[in-house]
Design a protein around this nucleic acid. Structure first.
Lengths: 229, 229
DNA sequence: ACCTGAACACCGTTCAAGT
DNA sequence: ACCTGAACACCGTTCAAGT
């Protein structure tokens, strides 16, 4: 699927993409702590040192993994251009086009992070490197930018949304594995009021996004093309 | 300072608190990657195995470290009770008492996290364990609760604030060390528009908090005791 | 272009035993 | 109550050398 068949030598020599795909598989099935260079090499039938021909170090590898996770956040449709503003939209509580678009991006990002075990932690860890999370920032900024805010406002707001999303999903995923390991602090175990509980998770996520978008709409009421009131 | 002098044996036998204090020192001076059980043991002049008398494992130790970091977020004054609502306050753009109080807590938390290298990451990693971050949640929830929202709303909103704070500061601290190592992705190096830059850091943080608090004030306009308009 | 072999300098954790 | 000694099963990374 991911690889383009490469050359015809029997014992597969691997490409960069092969390595990333194998890393994603380990991440998904066994989690970040088990994603070691040695284990990755073993699943590829290769010596650990071979990986260093493809990647300078583990951090770089993880950045590529983060990249793939975030790339899967593309909401179904095409790559670059959405269809044109199609007539009537079915108005939520806060239904400027830019706010809906931003929420769609945030939801897609959450889904993508949840799709891989420890996904949020991997993406968070590569935030400063400007990969993985970089595309997420671009997409969120683009959505918010539809509101006609000045560029800097859009960027800072997008960063706030991204930080909330990463923080929230990271918490959710920690909870998932803590529960599966039965490791929680005394007097706090299996706390059903925890906002990261699977039941309350989606709800708390939606609320957080709503707070940010509502705040943005209130604070920076730029000339929007819609909603004259 | 932290230890209560203990017994009189010459070669110091250590307490749990001693271990945590030493861990905090390593964290602050060398960062999380250097905070290993073996190195920690060495600075205490003890075998690595000795640490396992005090803590079940490294994760538990880190939770205690997180605890200490967050505990330092207490805004100067006393422990439990603030002084009474002292007369006139100098009104910000959004100056309900609860909003100001929440901002004070968020600021104190950011300062506490920034005070130790990789502080945000340490606290984040123990979020699901209900220590460290648990106290932060309590404090934020308490501040927001002053707005008279129902308990569940206060809790979810506090979690949103906490997730934003952890995500933002984590990014800031990653930036700090990435810059000091000169390790940034090509075409992205030393990006001055990055919201996690030291210059823009505080500004972006304030803006994010404002978005959340404004959104909360707008969405759940509970009967406040103040601001009749 | 992609990989092996061998080494270096580390990890967290367990457990019997000591004082 | 607190620690030693010794071991187990691992890590990430480098580098000369092979094909």
């Amino acid at each position: 699927m991911t690889n383009d068949d490469s050359s015809g030598s029997r014992y597969t020599r691997h490409s960069r993409d092969d390595v990333v795909a194998a890393a994603l598989a380990i991440l998904d099935q066994h989690g970040l702590p088990d994603l070691t260079m040695r284990r990755l090499a073993a699943t590829l039938d290769v010596q650990p040192s071979a990986l260093y021909w493809h990647f300078a170090n583990k951090q770089t590898l993880l950045a590529s993994v983060a990249d793939q996770i975030v790339a899967r956040a593309r909401p179904a449709g095409a790559g670059s251009g959405w269809a044109d503003d199609s007539g009537a939209d079915d108005a939520g509580a806060l239904s400027s086009g830019w706010a809906d678009a931003t929420r769609v991006e945030a939801d897609a990002l959450r889904d993508a992070l949840l799709a891989f075990r420890d996904g949020a932690e991997v993406v968070s860890s590569t935030l400063a490197l400007g990969l993985g999370a970089g595309e997420a920032m671009t997409r969120l900024t683009g959505a918010i930018d539809g509101g006609g805010f000045d560029r800097r406002t859009s960027e800072i707001a997008a960063a706030a949304v991204l930080h909330f999303v990463l923080g929230h999903v990271s918490h959710e995923q920690q909870r998932l594995q803590a529960d599966s390991l039965g490791v929680v602090a005394a007097g706090q175990s299996a706390d059903p009021s925890d906002v990261a509980t699977s039941a309350r998770g989606r709800e708390a996520f939606d609320f957080g996004i709503t707070l940010l978008l509502t705040g943005l709409a209130e604070l920076a009421p730029a000339r929007l093309s819609e909603s004259p009131a």
